[in-house]
Design a protein around this nucleic acid. Structure first.
Length: 748
DNA sequence: TCGAGAATTGTTTTT
DNA sequence: CAATTCTCGA
């Protein structure tokens, strides 16, 4: 016990030692949250003699799960792989593979990603004869998803629906669910809702897992949604040994159903809960932490806390403003190149609000030859060629996934068009067959005339590959599939640059398959009943692949700059962080400007971004930016303005820098200012001067002024807000002016 | 059936 | 300004 707790501070120790009953650990950014969880697990095993099998730890990403496993392993070597550490979704899949037959589903179900969901919903809209203009599958799916997150069934949904639009949406939900079932498929949300459903309808199953999971821990608790909460509550019970760890200030997933009240009301939901606050930050320099605190204090409805650090203040927050997005990107890339002259690029991260912003940055990084890794955007496993390959594999593994089969039926082109596919669909529906089985049969009965031959060739291909899949290792199978199907060959007809990128992605898929084979081959010890039961390697590979998030691919070892969204950055930390696109209308986004709830969420996101930085933080923005083909002008982000000037060092690179708005350094004044005028002016009416840290010219230098032409600098005086420069312009006279306003250029 | 070019959309954020 | 969907001729 001494050794386990010796490295912990008092609060952390308190959190670790409280093992029985409900516990809430409010862990501020960088306060050693993961440390608490891992040590708590170690303490349970080593001191409380709890069997590792009785511990469940839930994380939000596979990466976090892996990291946690690794760190627990360091503390309690032997038994650590007995602990169940997984994401919500992976946990649910494991449970469902064993028991979903109780709900009338096949245990070999496939998992649909967003694209699959879209395709399916499109079919639904067509079948229900709904106008795709008024009923967009995107918004219907959003409604369905939030219904599922709230555990509302189609029946409930239609009961509560009012008005034509909602009623039709209910119909879609209903039909969509039927089609999923018909395909033995679950979408992401189903994984959660089905598990809750399973526990609610089968007490014996619930009981089994309750006995197993005597100690439950949930990381990032502030981001749980209603379904996840229900799941936890079912497993733990009102007075179970449930320890949740989170930070209400870092709740940033409201858009996907996260319910911040899960954490805000924890003590009400679990009376008698032990609450521990971790407020010492071990990560960031003082100024960075102060900036974070200054920003987040503008949110109402949060648990009061004040993060502090023993670290020195460090550099000020660097604030840059540029003319446009490409200047912004150029400057950042150039600065990183200089600062990383030792090649330690992994110390840097560039963060942005929307994935679209990565483009300009990427271009600059490429031209300057800076190694970088891009996280997010299109998930690797959702890229077209990878999905095609996976669709082949799914069809080979079992012909049950109609979407997958249809996807590849004519890829590469086999001369089997939509009309034919439509006929097969009808045939399948009429005979209660899957799409693939319909293909096999339709060809036999010859109902399709001359298309029959083409279909025959396709099914022959699949059948022969299926035969081969029984003996061939995974990687070999994929190679053969790519070859025999003519997919690789077809790729060559593409644009050569594009084709090369695709080939590389397929190569990466092969690497992943090889890694997967190695992993499962090495771990020959019979995994306990938690593993999916006796699935062939191919099926298990497909399952694993369906649950990986893009962040899971992040390579922390490589010396590369990391480019990603602020959302993806949660839980990570870097020495030097750039937060880009700090502009009103972009961050905070347009939609949040008139919605206080939404604005608070954006502010939390900003807080998350700031607290990722250990040593140095830079915030950048552009005066104008191309959005949707038109130029948008914007003000510096209100979040930047919420950071007092005393913590910032600004530099304005725009052609016509703005005079600084009234900034208040004293907390009292700032407070009243914010209350009195919480909203910034929508447009750049205010001028802003930026005090440069130095001037490029001094007395005696020749300079050029926009209006007065050339002159000689007589004197430079440093004022509070700016440099005052006196210049002799000859015929235009001797003039005294502010440097930031005059924009003098040195000549010669 | 299929490709090229036109037209028409659209924007957060992701397990 | 994309990326996706639509339309039309072969």
């Amino acid at each position: 016990m001494e050794e386990i707790c010796s490295t912990l501070n008092e609060k952390q120790r308190e959190a670790v030692l409280c093992t029985e009953g409900p516990e809430l650990v409010l862990a501020g950014a960088g306060s050693g949250k993961t440390r608490v969880i891992t040590h708590r697990i170690a303490y349970l095993i080593r001191e409380k003699q709890v069997s590792p099998r009785n511990i469940l730890a839930i994380t939000f990403t596979n990466k976090a799960a892996g990291e946690m496993k690794r760190r627990v392993g360091q503390l309690v070597s032997e038994e650590s792989d007995q602990i169940w550490v997984a994401t919500f979704h992976a946990t649910c899949v494991r449970i469902l593979r064993r028991f979903i037959d109780r709900l009338g589903y096949d245990s070999h179900f496939t998992i649909y990603d967003t694209d699959d969901q879209r395709a399916l919903m499109k079919q639904v809209l067509k079948e229900l004869n709904l106008d795709p203009k008024t009923f967009r599958e995107r918004s219907i799916l959003a409604a369905v998803s939030s219904a599922k997150n709230e555990l509302r069934t189609p029946a409930q949904f239609s009961r509560e629906a009012s008005g034509y639009y909602e009623e039709r949406t209910a119909d879609c939900y209903h039909r969509y669910q039927e089609k999923l079932a018909g395909n033995d498929a679950l979408d992401f949300d189903d994984l959660l809702t089905m598990t809750v459903e399973l526990f609610r309808t089968c007490p014996d199953v619930l009981d089994l897992y309750r006995r197993r999971f005597r100690y439950i821990m949930v990381d990032e608790y502030q981001d749980t949604n209603t379904a996840q909460f229900a799941l936890i509550e079912l497993l733990a019970g009102k007075d179970g040994n449930l320890c949740v760890v989170g930070d209400d200030d870092q709740s940033i997933y409201r858009f996907r159903g996260a319910n911040i009240y899960n954490i805000l009301n924890f003590e009400k939901t679990f009376p008698g809960a032990h609450v521990v606050k971790l407020e010492e930050n071990y990560r960031s320099k003082g100024n960075i932490l102060s900036a974070a605190n200054e920003v987040i204090r503008n949110n109402l409805g949060r648990k009061e806390k004040h993060l502090w650090t023993r670290r020195d203040a460090g550099e000020k927050i660097h604030v840059f403003r540029f003319e446009n997005a490409s200047d912004e990107a150029e400057h950042i890339a150039e600065e990183i190149r200089q600062r990383a002259s030792d090649g330690r690029y992994s110390r840097f991260a560039v963060l942005y609000r929307t994935n679209a912003q990565s483009r300009a940055l990427e271009e600059r990084f490429v031209t300057l030859g800076i190694p970088y890794q891009l996280i997010g955007g299109v998930n690797f496993y959702q890229r077209k060629e990878v999905k095609d390959a996976l669709a082949y594999l799914k069809t080979i593994a079992n012909g049950r996934d109609d979407l997958a089969c249809r996807r590849i039926l004519n890829v590469p082109k086999r001369g089997i068009g939509d009309a034919t596919a439509q006929k097969v669909m009808e045939f399948a529906a009429a005979n209660g067959l899957s799409f693939y089985d319909a293909l096999l049969d339709a060809e036999k009965t010859g109902i399709l005339g001359r298309s029959g031959g083409k279909i025959r060739k396709f099914t022959d291909l699949i059948e022969s590959l299926r035969e081969r899949s029984r003996s061939l290792p995974l990687t070999e199978l994929i190679r053969e599939m790519l070859d025999k199907s003519g997919y690789l060959e077809d790729l060559a007809n593409d644009d050569p640059v594009e084709a090369e990128a695709r080939r590389q992605n397929l190569e990466e898929l092969l690497n992943k398959a090889a890694a997967f084979e190695n992993d499962t081959g090495a771990a020959e010890e019979p995994e306990d009943e938690s593993a999916s039961p006796d699935l062939p390697a191919l099926d298990r590979f497909l399952e694993e692949v369906s649950l990986v998030a893009d962040i899971d691919r992040m390579d922390t070892g490589a010396e590369k700059v990391t480019l990603m969204t602020l959302h993806a950055a949660k839980g990570l930390e870097f020495d030097e962080v750039y937060m880009t696109g700090m502009e009103d209308g972009l961050f905070p986004g347009m939609r949040s400007l008139d919605d206080p709830k939404e604005l608070e969420e954006e502010r939390r996101l900003c807080y998350v971004g700031i607290t990722r930085a250990r040593e140095r933080l830079t915030m950048t923005g552009a005066a104008r930016r191309m959005v949707n083909g038109e130029t948008r002008f914007s003000n510096e982000s209100m979040f930047v303005r919420e950071i007092p000037d005393s913590l910032k060092e600004r530099k304005d690179y725009t052609e016509r820098p703005q005079r600084t708005s009234w900034h208040f350094d004293g907390p009292g004044e700032a407070e009243s200012f914010r209350r009195a005028a919480p909203k910034p002016a929508a447009f750049g009416k205010e001028f802003r001067i930026v005090k440069a840290d130095h001037l490029e010219y001094g007395p005696g230098d020749r300079v050029k002024h926009m209006k007065f032409g050339e002159g000689t600098v007589l004197r430079v005086e440093e004022g509070a807000r700016d440099f005052e420069v006196t210049v002799d312009f000859g015929s235009h006279g001797v003039r005294k002016m502010f440097a930031g306003f005059a924009k003098l250029e040195k000549i010669g």
